[in-house]
Simulated scan of single mutants.
Amino acid sequence: MTRVLLILALVAAAFWVYTIVDCALQPPTRHRGVSKGVWIAITILLPVLGGILWFAIGRGRVSTTLLRRAPDDDPDFLGTIGSISDQDERIRRLEEELALLDSESADPPVPPVDPGSVPPAEKPTDDDGDARGQRGAVG
């Protein structure tokens, strides 16, 4: 009989320690009913009964379902984007910048050159008289 009582006492002590540690390590959002400190006090002052109460009432369950929303249903996302008029203004500015870049990239007109001011350049020729330096090339 004493062996059974000793085993029950060890099991109760292990359960008591486990409930205290479990209660202390859970985030405050998982404590139902009263605050985290009150649950720790309950589990310490009422060793077995406090543990049973902790697992039956106080310990909140982890939500296994993820709440997923589409971006247009999420108010946080909607608050981060600007209004349509802001977007229209930004598009207008970008189009103006693009038009400005297009006008800058066009070839500037070449100033006319006076033919009398530039001496004619001599073209070197090879043995066959080809000015381009290519033998046997047609065209």
Rank of each mutant, 00 (worst) to 15 (best):
T2K: 13
A9G: 09
V11M: 07
A12N: 08
A12C: 06
A14N: 03
W16L: 00
Y18L: 09
Y18H: 08
T19H: 02
I20W: 00
I20C: 02
V21D: 03
D22H: 09
L25N: 14
Q26T: 08
H31R: 13
H31L: 14
G33L: 09
S35C: 11
S35R: 12
W39C: 02
T43D: 01
L45M: 10
L45V: 09
L45D: 01
L45A: 12
P47M: 06
L49V: 14
G50V: 04
I52K: 06
W54I: 02
F55E: 03
F55G: 02
G60A: 11
V62Q: 15
T65F: 09
R69C: 05
A70C: 08
D73W: 15
G79M: 03
T80W: 11
G82L: 01
G82P: 02
S83H: 11
D86T: 10
D86A: 09
E89C: 09
E89T: 15
E89W: 14
R90L: 14
R92T: 12
L94E: 12
E95T: 03
E96P: 00
E97C: 00
A99W: 04
D107A: 07
D114E: 12
G116D: 15
G116S: 15
A121H: 10
T125N: 07
T125H: 10
D127G: 05
D130E: 05
D130M: 00
R135C: 01
G136A: 11
A137G: 05
V138K: 04
V138M: 03
